[in-house]
Amino acid sequence: MNITYREAVRSGMREALQRDPRVFLMGEDVGRYGGTYACSKGFLDEFGPERIRDTPLSESTFVGAGIGAALGGMRPIVEVMTVNFSLLALDQIMNNAATLRHMSGGQFSVPLVVRMATGAGRQVAAQHSHSLEGWYAHIPGITVLTPATVTDARGMLLTALEQPDPVFIFEHAYLYAMEGPLETNPVAVDISHAAVRRPGKDMSLLTFGGSLWKTLAAAARLAQEGIEAEVVDLRILRPLDRDTILSSVRKTHRAVVIDEAWRTGSFAAEVSAVIMEQAFYELDAPVVRVCSEEVPIPYPKHLEEAALPSAEKIVRAVRRLLG
C-alpha cells in the first residue's frame, strides 16, 4: 500500500494517541490548522483540545512544558515547526531534556518525543531551510532519528514513544509529499540500526534523511555505468550504528558521505572520522563528502539547487573517487 510520508507520520501519531492516554500532541498550529505540514489534520476533532494543544509562538515555553509533562508521567509529542526555530528551545533541550536523568542520578526520566521538520529544497529561504540535526547528534542524553521512508516515519515515532529518554525526530520537509510503500502491519520499528537500502560492492554511499532519495537516484545511474554502489541509510544519528558503516566500508573500501548540512563540522565529518579511525587500512581512497555549499540556503530556485547535494553531484564525487 502506497501512502505519503505525511500520512505515515499522521498514522503513527494517531495510533499512539489511540492506544495510550498519556500521549498528547503539542505545538504551533497543530490543532485548528491541522499542522503546518498537515500531519495532525482532523486530530482536534478526533481527540479534543486537551490532547491536541495549540501553543503560543514560543518554542522555549512549549518544549519546556513538554519536558515537564514527561517528568510528570505523560508521553508528550512536541512538534516544532522546523529545526530552524528549535534553536529558541535549545536551552530546554540541551540543559534540561538531555541532562535531567544524569543530574538526578537516574531518578527522573524525560520520555519526551520532539518532532520537527528539517532541510531545504522548497524555496522557503534561509530561515526555513537549514539542516541542523547534526548539531543535535552532538548531544549525549538524547536520541536523534532521521526517518527517510514512510515505514520509518510511522514506525520510528511509535518506538520513540516507548523510550524512557528524549527522542528527537527530524522529518525532511521535502519528504512529506513523497509516496512510498508502507510495510503491511508495521508495528514497532527498530531505532538502533542503520539500513542498507541498496547493496553494492564498489562503493559505500552513506547518508540519511532527505538525501537518501538523491543518493538512491545516483546509485541507479552509477549502476548503468557498471558501478555497484551500496547505499546505507544511517537512520539514527545518535547513537550511531558504526558497525553497519564499517562493515560496508570493509566490503567496498571506498566511502562517500552525503549530508545536506554544511560541510564544516557536519555530521558527515563525524562519519568520515569514524571510518578513518576504525577502517583506515580498509580504505582504497580518501573518504569524500557531498554536502551543502557554505552559504545560508538561497531562495532562488537555481541557487538553492546549486547549494544542495544532488544526484548529479554524488555521481561526480563517485567518479572522481574511482580515478
Binding site: 573500501h253 582504497d284 581512497a285 580518501p286 572522481r320 573517487l321 574511482l322 580515478g323
Partner: peptide
C-alpha cells in the same frame, strides 16, 4: 602504476 584518484595505487 596507480589507476586511482591522482594516480594512487589501489587494491
Amino acid at each position: 602504476r596507480g589507476t586511482g584518484p591522482e594516480g594512487a595505487i589501489t587494491l
